[in-house]
Design a protein around this nucleic acid. Structure first.
Lengths: 171, 171
DNA sequence: TCATCAAATGTTATGATATAACGTTTTCAA
DNA sequence: TTGAAAACGTTATATCATAACATTTGATGA
């Protein structure tokens, strides 16, 4: 599969439980390679591996879970190992930090500049990123009413994803 | 002053540096007393004191700063002392937790049900709560596009408050 | 080649935030 | 006045994150 055709790669909606997650991972890794190449940033083996581990699912992953995973693979790893890799990934927009969870999640669209807008299911733990530009603009407009100049916005919404809401409502 | 007339109590906009902050504190304490009385919740001396300490300014306060303050007053205090008080205040809507800062701030309008919408100045550290119902509705509408049912939303916006933006722009 | 520098990573220690678990005191009502 | 529940005290520990310094790696040019 040529990495120049990531057309349908997206996690901007909730995935079915049985979806082909390998495609999510591969797409994210290809996008990361591409982005780092363009920016002259080095996606080292360690950083790439940490990114892959962050993408193990659509749930946020804690730094120490990543640390355990690296150690399980026989790597020499300590907290700074993983935090440095995470800092790199954050600085290049490849992952996001979920403040409420103290955890990290892969960014499905590292190319677009965007606000962090996350829907977090309380039932299954799945998190998706919305990337709703109009909503971001609405936030900036509200802030402007208070004379506030926005640098960065972070929206974390808790609730129930379609699958879990159905389950809760129907049964 | 009768607690039934808290008409002009509000921190829904940025305060001048020299404003009469004692009024902010007194208003918040009066509102808390009132709210706890109505809900049959006990605003003990400790809880009241922690709330007052949280209101020392319009900046978020960390749990361990509160702990130090309590100890400085000669109280027996340990982390659970302050976290339990904070949990009480959170559960009754008297304070909010700022996830990004791992810190707490007083809620200027504990009576209204509302989303957490905060503007946080990177320069001076001041935080204000917006309480923009339309914005909350916009968030819910965006979430609904993804079939997501919202339970709770948390918006943390970083940027520059009017005073600091003026300083940065003008000088 | 190999000297050199910067970036990346390894390593040790510690700081900062938060909670578990259990004992004691207070409160309040029967 | 006693029994139960809530609040608070106390000790220990879990969890998240960074400081500081040593070593390795990789690119560059003499």
């Amino acid at each position: 599969m040529p990495p120049s055709a990531p057309a349908s790669r997206s996690t901007a909606t909730f995935q079915r439980p049985g979806h082909d997650h390998r495609r999510c991972i591969d797409g994210a890794l290809a996008a990361a390679e591409e982005r780092c190449r363009r920016r002259g940033a080095k996606l080292t083996e360690l950083r790439r591996r940490v990114l892959e581990l962050v993408w193990q699912g659509h749930e946020p992953v804690g730094a120490y879970a990543l640390l355990d995973a690296l150690r399980a693979e026989g790597r020499a790893a300590a907290p700074p190992t993983v935090y440095r890799a995470l800092d790199f990934l954050l600085s290049h927009g490849l992952i996001h930090r979920l403040e409420k969870a103290n955890a990290f999640i892969g960014c499905p669209r590292p190319d677009d500049p965007h606000a962090g807008q996350f829907l977090m299911c309380l039932e299954c733990g799945t998190v998706i990123e919305m990337d709703d530009a109009a909503l971001g603009a609405a936030v900036a407009a509200s802030a402007a009413k208070h004379g506030f100049a926005v640098s960065r916005q972070m929206l974390e919404v808790e609730g129930h994803c379609p699958s879990c809401a159905r389950g809760a409502a129907g049964g």
